Simulated assay, not measured.
Amino acid sequence: MTRSARAALKQPTRTDKPAEPVIDTVIDTDTRLRYRLIHDQLKSAIVLGRIVPGLVLLEGPVARIFGTSRVPVRKAFEMLHADGLLHTFEGRGYLVASPDGSVPEPVRAPLSEAELGFEQAQAPLELPSNSERIYHALEAAVSIAIAFGHYRIDESLAAESFGVSRSAVREALSRLRDFGLVEKSAYSHWLAGPLTARAVAQDYELRVLLEPAALRASYPKLSREMIENAFAEIEGAIRAPDSIDADGIQRLETTLHVDLLQHAPNKKLLGTIDHALMPLTVNHAFFHAFNLHPEPATLVEHRAVLRSLLDGNIDAAADALLVHLHAAHKRTLQRLKVLAVLPEPDLPVYMQRII
C-alpha cells in the first residue's frame, strides 16, 4: 500500500450492482484542480496589473500556456467574469477589466508567461500527467485485490476505464512495480498478488531490523510540533476509537511507519522499508471489509512510541516501535487468515483473477 491512504474504489465492476466509474471521478478531480489553479494565476496577474486592461483572453492560447484542455480554462474565465475581473464583448473571448471595473477598448495581443508571473511556461503549476492522475486509483485497486488472490491487469481495459492511453496506464503500472505492488511476466502481462503469510512474515522481518534504525536516524530532524500533533491524534483515538474508520487507522499507521521515519538520510534504507509496507494492505482491507475500529492494544503501542519521543528518549521510542512491530506481525497474520475465507470483493473490470 506504500505511503498513501486508500480511497474507496469507484470502478465499473463485474457485478449486477452499478458503480460510478473512476474515469468521471478522476477527470472531475483533475479539472477542479486545473480550473482553480488557472483562475488563481490569472486573478493575481490582473489584480497586480501585469495584464493590460482590455487584453482579449481566448481559451485556446491560455490553455496552451497552462498545458491543459479548454474545459478548465472556460470555467476559470466564467469565475473571473463573475468576480468582475473579465468582461464579455461582441467578439470572441473576454476582456480584462480596468482597475475601476469599466469596460476598456479591446487590445488584441498575445498573452505571455511573464505577464502571468511565470519565469517559464507552466512552472508554477506542475499539472499532473494522465499517468500521475490515475496512479492512486490503480494503486488502491491493486492493494485491495492482492489480499484476495492472484490477478492480471489488462492494460486495454484499464485505459478504457480511465479514458487515457495505454502508455499512461503502462507508466503508472511501472511506478507500482518499483514499489513491489505489481510485476511483469515473461509474456509482458502485468500481475499482482497473491499476498501470502510468508510474504507478510518476510516484510516484518525487514521492518523489525530497519524501522527502529530509521527512527533513530530521523529523530534529530523531527519537529516538536509534528510529534505533539501525532500524540494528540493517538490520544483522541484512544478516547474515541469508534470515531476511527479503516482510512483513519491507515493514517495513524502512516504517521508512525512513514512520517516519523522520513528524515532518515539513507534513502536506500527508506526505500527498502517502503517496499516492506505491504502488511498495511492486509490491515486496511481487513478493517474495511468488517467496518471495524482500531484495537486498544494497537493504539497504546503507538502512544508508547510517541510518548518516548516527546520525552526525548529515542532509545525507549525505538524499543517501543520494536514491541509494536512484533505484536502487529501476529495480528496481521491472523487477519490474513480471516480475509482468505471472505468472498472476492467488487473489483474494477481490468483486474482479472488468475485461477
Rank of each mutant, 00 (worst) to 15 (best):
T255S: 06
L9G: 05
K330C: 08
R133I: 09
R177C: 06
A145G: 13
I146C: 06
H284L: 10
L125F: 13
A192S: 15
I355D: 12
L269W: 03
V52A: 05
T272P: 00
H257E: 08
G271V: 07
S44W: 12
V26K: 04
Q202S: 12
S243H: 14
A5F: 02
I227Q: 01
E253L: 09
K75T: 11
Y219E: 15
D247Y: 02
R32A: 05
L86I: 13
V300Y: 04
Q120R: 07
I244G: 04
A109Y: 04
H275Q: 10
L86K: 13
L48E: 13
L85N: 14
S174V: 06
F286D: 05
P128H: 11
S112H: 14
A318S: 04
P279A: 00
R34E: 11
R6A: 13
N283E: 14
L309E: 03
L55P: 03
T88Q: 14
L42A: 11
E183V: 00
R177W: 02
A197C: 03
P128I: 09
A186K: 04
D28K: 07
D315N: 05
I249P: 00
R239C: 01
R175K: 15
L309V: 07
K17L: 11
P345A: 02
A276V: 01
Q352S: 08
A109Q: 13
Q11V: 05
V103Q: 15
E78L: 15
K337M: 10
F66R: 15
E20M: 08
Y35N: 12
V52R: 09
E119N: 02
P220T: 14
D100C: 13
S185Q: 00
H284R: 11
A145D: 09
R152F: 04
E233S: 15
S44Q: 14
S98E: 14
R70S: 15
H136Q: 11
R216Y: 10
I227E: 01
L322S: 04
A192E: 12
Y94L: 03
D245N: 15
E119V: 06
R335A: 06
S218F: 09
L210M: 01
E301Y: 05
L55V: 13
G193T: 06
I146A: 00
E105L: 12
T13V: 09
K43F: 07
D30L: 04
E115K: 12
E90Y: 07
T332L: 09
P104T: 14
L261S: 01
I244R: 00
A304W: 03
A232F: 09
E183T: 04
Y135E: 13
G180H: 01
I244Q: 02
S167I: 07
A318W: 01
A246W: 04
A137Q: 08
K337D: 14
S112Q: 12
L57W: 07
L280V: 03
G49A: 00
P241C: 02
P212G: 00
M278H: 06
E78A: 15
Y350S: 03
L86F: 11
F290G: 00
P241K: 02
K75G: 00
E344S: 07
T254S: 07
R303E: 07
P53E: 06
L342A: 10
F162C: 10
T281S: 14
S174D: 14
A214M: 01
